[in-house]
Nucleic acid binder design. Structure first.
Lengths: 248, 248
DNA sequence: TAGGGGAACTTGTACAAACAAGCGAGCACC
DNA sequence: GGTGCTCGCTTGTTTGTACAAGTTCCCCTA
């Protein structure tokens, strides 16, 4: 059962993407939308709040809402799962486990993953037949067994874990920067050592705030970019200073 | 005049950051908070929605809200303005215009900036005395004159434009990837040609959706990273495939 | 014709009420 | 001891109302 405001948001999004409301045009007023959909104004407000969060429309007190963009913003899963992102965008993709082993947690890992023993996995993923991503993931102890049961060429770890143990990734924190390719990165991705890679370090937790995994993903330059829409009032992305001298 | 729900959100955020509600603990229920602040439940919901959007708390139907993080998320301005970000974080910083010229808009610029003539500015910005960022910004024609009036070592273009002509940056779209340093990048930043840079391409518009600027910013690797918190239900960051062969 | 003053419109904030849906703990039963 | 079920609590959704605050545009006046 989808809620009312979500259905309204979907309809409005479709209208924007299909050009009924071109970029720069004004959206109908909340009162008009409420009448059109036979809903209360509060419900319509929830719907347009969804679109505002997606960066599709802007909003100012006193003035009508304005259409800002017409490109679809993808779901949460697509930021965490390479497979779900690639599939949703119609790319051919693959994946292969290169190495996998259990080891004691070290450094910041015990705190970050709330485990003493962790499972370390090195995966190489490809897009359109070309290797584009080296994934070094560390799983918390309590999911290690489930991950080990997966086949080496498992396409989507996220989906497989959901199906096998009902695990849902709910929250994530991501750090994005650029690093030179190391020897292993270079060999696996087929680039020169020292060439630029886009790095995404992420930590994921369940709904309960229980840590699941912590990963260091490195994309070949030019293969993938990250895109953010933000506005005054809502933006989750922030800049962070690094060491200024060394890479951590 | 700050609204009620914002004050409640501020108080709760302070309580989380100061450890009254440690990470992993449960937040009081909406009913309790409503009673404590003498507000309606809807108002409290608005307040916790702010914290959820910041990634500080997680939320599940039926269960109490859980504290997920205790790091502050910065404001919109800090993503657009190097100066405002640096100042808010207590860094020493500087900036210098290297080159500046008017020229006719070309390629995708007429559509993106809605101008026939644009102003191109090359700036070098430093953090803690070291050059970290090369900024190649193209301004729409209607702000060109105001930008040209700024001093060459203007610390914050965003703030200066607000003070001089009341211009407010309200929405932005950002593309983040990694690129090798070009000859000019390398010379200005003091790195080797081909070494990794973190690139942020952004387009900014006003409240009315009027395009202001389009910029290509390149950070020295290790100097700056981008950080995102997201959750099922709210995340504006998406991955995008590049060309797989060339850089655009 | 330029500018000031409003009136109508539109979004933002706040409160109240009711029901739906999911969670967790405790209890009874096997 | 373990399993399943029920009940109370908590968050999610929806409606309705009222007022505040900001914008837009028209009209009147100087």
């Amino acid at each position: 059962m989808v809620s009312r405001y979500e259905r309204i948001a979907d309809e409005l999004r479709d209208e924007i993407l299909s050009g009924v409301h071109p970029v720069g045009s004004q959206l109908p007023s909340e009162a008009e939308l409420a009448e059109r959909y036979g809903a209360a104004r509060g419900t319509v407000r929830q719907a347009v709040a969804v679109l505002a969060a997606e960066g599709l429309v802007g909003s100012r007190q006193g003035a009508r809402r304005i259409v800002l963009g017409n490109a679809r913003s993808q779901s949460f899963a697509e930021l965490h799962s390479f497979a779900q992102w690639a599939r949703a965008n119609g790319y051919r993709f693959g994946g292969q486990v290169i190495a996998q082993r259990r080891r004691p947690a070290s450094g910041a890992e015990p705190a970050r993953l709330a485990s003493e023993e962790v499972l370390e996995v090195l995966r190489l993923r490809s897009l359109e037949g070309e290797p584009v991503l080296v994934e070094r993931t560390v799983y918390a102890g309590w999911v290690a067994a489930a991950v080990e049961r997966l086949p080496a060429d498992c396409e989507s770890v996220t989906e497989a874990l959901y199906e096998s143990v009902g695990l849902v990734f709910a929250y994530g924190e991501h750090l994005i920067d650029a690093v030179p390719a190391g020897a292993q990165d270079a060999r696996l991705l087929g680039v020169r050592r020292g060439s630029p890679l886009l790095r995404q370090r992420r930590t994921t937790t369940t709904h309960e705030g229980r840590p699941v995994e912590s990963s260091d993903d490195r994309y070949r330059a030019g293969s993938v970019a990250f895109s953010i829409r933000n506005s005054i009032g809502a933006n989750p992305l922030v800049r962070q200073a690094g060491d200024l001298r060394f890479e951590r």
